[in-house]
Design a protein around this nucleic acid. Structure first.
Lengths: 111, 111
DNA sequence: AATGTAGCTACAAATTATGTAGCGTCAAGG
DNA sequence: CCTTGACGCTACATAATTTGTAGCTACATT
């Protein structure tokens, strides 16, 4: 699976590996969109507001290499690890909602 | 603070705002590096393995606009919100370490 | 005046992402 | 058979982002 050295960090610390992949556009979004089960390449593309197939495939390759995503018979899905990480994103979602309410209490946010 | 619509999403959902900023290079890293107190612009630059001042400033502007980072007398620091979000990153760090051990056990591959 | 530090900008080169078209494969329908 | 449609995915030119380096203004210390 090779969690080797990454862009922007010589340490190769796991968190840096994560920052490297998650700090690229669509990575977080892909993990997020796969939260409710497998999606085909094209369904994922639609879910991600039509991200280009080029990046999508590049990300999926990287995420698969890191063992976070896999390609099954019903499309792309999160692995056990990816699902675990996905839970952190769910936490992030909860946090973001609270944050938004805090940030703009006077101006109601459409949800 | 304007958590308005963002790149790659028409919904403007808080999590999408977060994905938008965090999905850009160095954003996660900046929040991470500010975990132990304020850093001057240059110290932050060094901490981030010499990220270019251009991006650094662009990110800092965005993070300040979102109310996650502020500029104090001792340099840049996380706001209460930013600190709160930073805790999520600490969780992520813990997760990443466990993940790395799982992914690359010392020598023998469990099978 | 000289030096050192602060935050920050300018700008060309390099890297990364987008948008659109299309390929090869397979399965179902006419 | 032969089209139709869905699948994962690639090609490639254009556009956007990031990098690296140099240098700016301002302020404080020597």
């Amino acid at each position: 699976m090779s969690l080797g050295p990454v862009r922007g960090s010589t340490t190769g610390r796991p968190i840096m590996v994560l920052f490297d992949i998650l700090g690229q556009r669509w990575s977080l979004r892909i993990l997020w969109e796969l939260r409710q089960g497998p999606l085909t390449f094209r369904a994922l593309r639609d879910a991600c507001d039509g991200a280009s197939p080029t990046v999508l495939n590049t990300r999926l390759k990287a995420l698969r290499q890191l063992g976070l995503v896999d390609l099954g018979p019903d499309g792309y899905l999160r692995t056990a690890d990816g699902d675990d990480l996905g839970k952190q994103l769910a936490d992030l979602d909860r946090w973001a909602n609270a944050w938004a309410e805090r940030s703009a209490p006077e101006r109601p946010q459409q949800s």
